[in-house]
Design a protein around this nucleic acid. Sequence first.
DNA 1: GATGAATGAGGGTTCATTCAT
DNA 2: GATGAATGAACCCTCATTCAT
Lengths: 201, 201, 201, 201
Amino acid sequence: MTELLEAALQVFSSKGYRNTRLEEVAEAAGVTKGTIYHYFENKEALLIGVIEHYQTLAFGRVEEVLREVGLSVSARIRLLVRKAFVDADRTRRPMVSLLLRGVAHEVPHAHQRWLREGPVRLWTVIAQLVAEGQKRGEFRLDADGEVGARLLVSGLLVQVMWQQHADDIPELAVDEDRLIDSSVELFLAGLRPVGVVMAEK
Amino acid sequence: MTELLEAALQVFSSKGYRNTRLEEVAEAAGVTKGTIYHYFENKEALLIGVIEHYQTLAFGRVEEVLREVGLSVSARIRLLVRKAFVDADRTRRPMVSLLLRGVAHEVPHAHQRWLREGPVRLWTVIAQLVAEGQKRGEFRLDADGEVGARLLVSGLLVQVMWQQHADDIPELAVDEDRLIDSSVELFLAGLRPVGVVMAEK
Amino acid sequence: MTELLEAALQVFSSKGYRNTRLEEVAEAAGVTKGTIYHYFENKEALLIGVIEHYQTLAFGRVEEVLREVGLSVSARIRLLVRKAFVDADRTRRPMVSLLLRGVAHEVPHAHQRWLREGPVRLWTVIAQLVAEGQKRGEFRLDADGEVGARLLVSGLLVQVMWQQHADDIPELAVDEDRLIDSSVELFLAGLRPVGVVMAEK
Amino acid sequence: MTELLEAALQVFSSKGYRNTRLEEVAEAAGVTKGTIYHYFENKEALLIGVIEHYQTLAFGRVEEVLREVGLSVSARIRLLVRKAFVDADRTRRPMVSLLLRGVAHEVPHAHQRWLREGPVRLWTVIAQLVAEGQKRGEFRLDADGEVGARLLVSGLLVQVMWQQHADDIPELAVDEDRLIDSSVELFLAGLRPVGVVMAEK
DNA sequence: GATGAATGAGGGTTCATTCAT
DNA sequence: GATGAATGAACCCTCATTCAT
């Protein structure tokens, strides 16, 4: 059954949910069409199964970081973003692709849930951290932390997803570590008070 | 025929290409199914028609801004981003949605072309401007301008697209002007040399 | 309107009635689709129109030859076959093709009428002539004149029709005059009394 | 699957390929529309399937007869024609109908192949036999054997096909054995040297 | 559990036919 | 008379789903 989920994830994300025949999923999983119906009620249930199975891997207990007051806010943001995006798992990219495009029109409910529990939640936490940093004097007060957090999260998601097409469009390719690190650093630099050199890192 | 394109854009982007019956497009355009085939060879041609018709509105002659040496680099970046994203046209958001998700698996070629001529091109130009700013001393030399440009463009695209779901997920809603302005300002702030107050704005 | 009939004949016979769009007929006739409906109620009426217009050319007053008692039977048969098949008209071959295959399932009534008034009538008359020849002693009594007449008429029809494919299958090609003349001569030779040299020709 | 081919043969030949809905074939085979697509890629593939399945029955190893030098040429021709046309199989007539009319415009390639491997091949062999007979003195030298062979084969084909319409046009009806036997005898008689009684039969 | 033949609703596509201009 | 945009019934084809083995 894990094979089925794995196969479904790969095929759905690479061809699109509607463009995928159940037979293709079955074949990719090394079984036949009928077998899928032993484990899933129907095609949509399979899709939801995939989402639920892999989504848990995405953003764990993100809010915890809010309480780790020992660290500087910047450090906690770095931590958070790494936790969310640095991930050697080969299911991550397909999942982003699936959630970002494959699912919105097929199972709107699952899509909305993901939005809420995934990106929105992540950037909300980051925005809260920024607010805390502003109180602490770590960040300048006139910066729009929320929009910044949105940009950071959304931008990274799409960039990760687009790596899928790097074979066809070489300009898209970018080293993921650099992508993530540079993104966080620029984000933090944008929040830094003017005229103050941040010694911490 | 413009009615058809308009209708197709709306329906495709709101329900997804594959989930849309030609009959629905026809109905939305106030004609019947058969009429579509007077103007388009088939469903895919209609989709491509939509893309080609509205894409031109997207990013015009973006490169021009590289040559406007009279302005500061920051000013030119602000100009560019506004030109690309500030747009009262009600076709913009559906188009982004269509291109970002509806099209990748249906007409990969059109999708790739859009990527190249749209987002990639835009962030490439921005990255070039950043490089110029670094030479001029306007930006700090150790900033990763390219990643920043990617983040800015990708993030804005997704945020714009997600406004489509703001009715269902209130946390998604954000004022578009604020979104765009804050994004650019944060982006520029992240590039600013440390310890230097930028007088210009 | 004659242009329409002519065009319809050509296109119908070369592509088949069902495979022909009215638009193709119109185009071949140098008019547009709608025009056809000024002259013909519908597609089938056009087909029937074609058949009726050109069929008359086929077999005129074939029975007359029965009464021309001055001539030998052989001479009259030669006459008859030539009258029916020797024809420089470029509408003849398409007509045969149309009637032999294009029409049977489309307008069975017209097809049956053609069969009756065309081939069946022709071989009936020939069979009658053979019978007369047998009475006269011109032909041997034990020959199956009717089957011979059938073979002659049917065989010539198909051979004429198949000339349509002579471009693709060179083995099919045969000179029409030779085809017709040799056929009649062999037919007559087959009827000739054994051991008797026929001086007449 | 054999049921499908059988059903398709019957329906195609009686209504015409283009006039036949796949649903009718399915119904005739006692299955439903979708089932056809388990066995055949599409409608055309079904038609080709029919042709290939039944054509093999048509003319087997016709050339063998050329080498049977023990028999007189006349005997061998009789044998050949019987082998080709005397056939109690109820698939024969529909096949002839299908090949003679239903197929030329639908799958020209299959049609041409049939022409080449069927009628053309048969009359070529017969013509060769005639030539051999002429050398041997069995037939007169001035007879046009090739045209005669064409007439024999083509005429028989059409006559067989037209028996399909004997219900509607009684004059068409003819006993098939008589048709075939008389045809061959007349053909042979036409080739016989003048003034010589052929003792052999 | 697994299979794969069979089903049939759904939807893309064709094209004869109509009709306002 | 001629046009060609619009119509909609017909039909091919796809594929999720079922079920007997």
